[in-house]
Design a protein around this nucleic acid. Structure first.
Ligand code: ATP
Ligand code: MG
Length: 803
DNA sequence: GACAATCCCCTTTTT
DNA sequence: GGGGATTGTC
């Protein structure tokens, strides 16, 4: 029984549970739930006479699905079983395939497109503009309005998504007695626009699939349904799980779910960990398995994480046992500002890599929100550390890429007004107003005319729009002709790969794209990535049987399902050179993953927990509980070394780390003595040469900074100047350019900050390198500072330790 | 009045 | 990376 190897007693019990029946595995992080689920799939395939296509396995991300497939392939080696036939993926990707195949049953355009975030944004913006009558100050702050009574884009999006995740379509919502009339109007407008463009949003995909499966047993062969990360399923997903398991009368109600209520972090999307209880009520015969052994982390990581959760109400403490012999104290450290925090992380990463304790792939830096990655990127760049930002679909949402994709969409999707309007807006000479006007026109005339036709009418003067400048009309004409040109290059008859590549080349030569790409190597590289992808892209088997779509259409559809990481992987297999990169990720997308070294950055009051309040959906207390779980998930990603850092004011979430002595230190003790370092290396399984010198280097890495040092390197504050610390230290942004003659500080740090910045993050403090030459103190006058440097000596940050 | 360019500030989390 | 305000230009 090869597939049962490497499992403990309890895990084995779960893996070999009967094919028929329901099973819940409820256990903490790193206890091997995902491993168990993978083994169970193998077990069912190998010993229970189950074919791959008779199983549904849902994972939380596409990456997780990919990983599970790879592990399964290993477990099933030599067995003739074709892993690719498994229905494995996220709920969404499984359902998209289903809907394409059975679109006929749902009266659905089989060539439907999945609306991107941008599409949804544009649609909601347009409908807000179309419903000026709904701006009602007296209804300020309701479910769809902001504090001034205007319709709010984000609120509308959330409200609609919320309805759909409770399986309320327009009809059902209308019939519910406590519906909001205005929300209903907005909902209808939204739906109208989506339908017109044959678009489905993420919630539609689940909702329609549920309806489909209830109407017709499309998945009649399914014998068992397996679900990972069950604590983050929402109402409609639980319904889907049920429906999946009702498709085959001979094998009804066969479900295995695994998860951990403490790791439920998607409440904002309707996830309810109570689904464990709901499921138990639905299936009283459901059995449960609990696991205690943790195979991922050291005991210190587990203890610190558990300590954080002590504040959690309604929770039994969960004592996990680490399987590691040696354990190392976690690091918690606060910095004066986020700039220094990022610098510390970069230095630390550089150190552990340079001593060959771990390599880049063993390291991850976790943050609460996406924007926090920028400052860290910048510092890693400074240290020439290779990194990659983990974010599934983000590649396709980059400016240059999405513009290209929009232009491709326009060529083959005649109803796609979202893409057309964005393409239009990308031309110089056409501004917001013109786009809005034309958008409105498309809205009004859609019944009889395709968007492209309307563009044509505008460009040849058939449709006269008031106050539309001739400049705009000319641009429309240009665009129209260009699109026609493209359609000559690529169409139903000319849909081979070389035509597609020719189309790509034509489109990427276009001015708006060229303007973005010149002077920006990264953007250029991104575009050639896409071209490379087009060269090798093959539609999925499953998708191929669906419809006679052209290659380009298949490609556009695949964007909804595949992440660029997979592109990257293909690439890597080809060139056969493993790319080593530090991961930077939000905590939410790091779910289920693990690294030897983990940094959790940005535990700063107001940022994490985010000061964002959403009293309409959750109570503030619940919100903090969820944020605490987010931190718990983050910390439990670590196998050996865990760092938690913050800037300026410390988050309430980590109070216990600072209050309790002996939990966290300010730098890694395991890197600070030869003996500990050797132990650590042994546990990791690497060989570190000359530990002694690395320890010495580590001790000097974060030098003690005296107040005098800080004083001499003090920052000049001025009233109105570019907020340099933003501009220099953050990648991107469209703020003021740093003047070319801008003086950097003595040590390469910015010396001028705005008063506003100082009030926000406090006066920056920069460490002085050991080899810094002496500096003459500037006069207090020139610095606008008190005449005397602070006298009291206080060690900042690191305390010297006895060797 | 429409548009582009510039500056300042803020930024939840994802399929 | 973008929303919003402001300014200068056509
Ligand atoms: N019985 C075991 N013996 C040795 N290693 C194990 C065992 N079970 C799991 N592991 C290892 O422990 C690590 C964590 O396992 P896994 O990812 O399955 O945990 P999990 O419960 O799914 O965690 P999470 O809640 O974070 O998703 C993996 O590296 C896995 O290979
Ligand atoms: Mg897991």
């Amino acid at each position: 029984m090869e597939h049962l190897r490497g499992l403990n007693e309890e895990q084995r019990l779960a893996v070999t549970a009967p094919l028929n029946g329901q099973l819940q595995v409820i256990a903490g992080p790193g206890t091997g739930k995902t491993k168990l689920l993978t083994s169970r799939v193998a077990h069912l395939l190998l010993t229970q006479n189950v074919q791959p296509h008779q199983l549904i396995v849902t994972t939380f991300t596409r990456k997780a699905a990919q990983e599970m497939k790879e592990r399964l392939a290993l477990l099933l080696e030599g067995s003739q079983i074709d892993v690719s036939k498994l229905r494995m993926g996220t709920f969404h990707s499984i359902c998209i395939r289903l809907l394409r195949k059975y679109s006929g049953d749902m009266d659905l355009d089989p060539r439907f497109t999945v609306a991107s975030n941008k599409d949804v944004d544009d649609i909601v913006d347009a409908l807000i503009g179309n419903l000026p009558g709904l701006e009602l100050p007296e209804k300020a702050d309701d479910v769809i309005r902001d504090d001034q009574g205007r319709l709010s884009k984000s609120k509308i999006k959330r409200a609609i998504s919320h309805l759909k995740s409770k399986a309320l379509d327009i009809k059902a919502y209308m019939e519910s007695d406590k519906h909001d009339k205005d929300l209903l109007t907005v909902y209808e407008e939204y739906d109208k626009r989506m339908k017109r463009q044959s678009m489905l949003d993420f919630d539609d995909i689940l909702l329609l699939s549920l309806k489909l499966l209830r109407k017709r047993k499309c998945l009649f062969g399914i014998k068992h349904v397996l679900v990972d990360e069950f604590q983050d399923t929402n109402h409609i997903q639980l319904e889907l799980i049920n429906e999946f398991s009702h498709q085959n009368e001979a094998f009804r109600d066969n479900i295995t779910v695994v998860g951990d209520p403490d790791q439920s972090i998607y409440a904002f999307r309707g996830a309810v960990s109570e689904n464990f209880e709901f499921m138990k009520k639905m299936y009283p015969s459901c059995t449960a398995v609990y696991l205690r052994e943790n195979y991922r982390s050291t005991q210190d990581v587990l203890d610190a994480s558990e300590l954080i959760m002590k504040d959690q109400q309604d929770r039994d403490s969960k004592l996990l046992r680490s399987q590691y012999k040696d354990s190392f104290k976690i690091v918690y450290r606060n910095f004066a500002n986020d700039f220094l925090e990022a610098k510390f992380i970069a230095k630390e990463v550089e150190h552990v890599i340079s001593m060959k304790l771990v390599d880049e792939n063993d390291i991850c830096i976790l943050v609460r929100s996406n924007y926090m990655t920028r400052i860290i990127e910048k510092e890693l760049n400074n240290c020439r550390i290779k990194y990659s930002i983990v974010k599934g679909r983000a590649f396709w949402e980059r400016k240059e890429i999405s513009l290209l994709v929009d232009r491709l969409r326009v060529v083959v999707r005649p109803h796609d007004s979202c893409a057309l309007l964005r393409v239009l807006g990308s031309h110089t000479g056409i501004g917001l107003m013109s786009v809005k006007k034309i958008g409105k026109l498309i809205d009004e005339l859609h019944g009889t005319n395709e968007p492209l036709r309307i563009l044509q009418d505008i460009s040849c003067g058939n449709l006269r729009l008031e106050k539309l400048q001739t400049k705009v009309i000319n641009t429309c004409k240009e665009l129209y002709e260009e699109i026609r040109d493209c359609q000559k290059i690529y169409n139903r008859e000319l849909s081979d790969r070389s035509s597609l590549l020719r189309l790509f080349d034509r489109v990427s030569q276009q001015q708006a794209i060229q303007k973005l790409v010149t002077d920006d190597e990264e953007k250029r590289n991104n575009l050639s990535e896409v071209r490379k992808y087009l060269e090798i892209f093959e539609p999925d088997d499953i998708d191929q049987e669906v419809e006679e779509l052209t290659l380009l259409e298949h490609f556009l559809n695949s964007i909804d399902i595949y992440s660029p990481e997979e592109m990257d992987d293909d690439d890597r297999k080809k060139t056969n050179e493993p790319s080593r990169k530090v991961s930077i990720s939000t905590i939410h997308s790091a779910k289920g993953l693990e690294w030897k070294v983990v940094f959790v950055a940005g535990l700063t009051q107001g940022k994490f927990p985010s000061s964002h309040i959403d009293p309409l959906v959750e109570s503030p207390v619940k919100k903090v509980c969820e944020e605490r779980r987010v931190l718990y998930v983050a910390m439990t990603r670590a196998q050996q070394l865990l760092y938690v850092t913050s800037a300026s004011e410390t988050s309430v979430l980590v109070k216990r780390l600072t209050d309790n002595t002996g939990i966290a230190t300010q730098r890694q003790i395991s890197l600070s003595t030869t003996e500990k370092l050797e132990k650590l290396a042994r546990q990791i399984g690497t060989v570190v040469e000359s530990c002694e010198s690395h320890v010495q280097k580590y001790l000097s890495l974060h030098p003690v900074v005296t107040p005098q040092d800080r004083y001499y390197n003090k920052i000049q504050t001025i009233d109105k100047a570019p907020s340099i610390e933003n501009r220099i230290s953050y990648a991107g942004g469209k703020g003021p350019k740093v003047p070319s003659d801008f003086k950097l500080g003595r040590y390469g740090y910015p010396r001028i900050v705005t008063k506003r910045a100082v009030s926000r993050i406090g006066m920056p403090e920069y460490p002085i390198p050991d080899n810094a030459p002496p500096v003459l103190a500037p006069t207090s006058k020139s610095l606008n500072l008190p005449a005397q440097a602070p006298k009291r000596r206080k060690t900042l940050g690191v305390r010297r330790r006895k060797p």
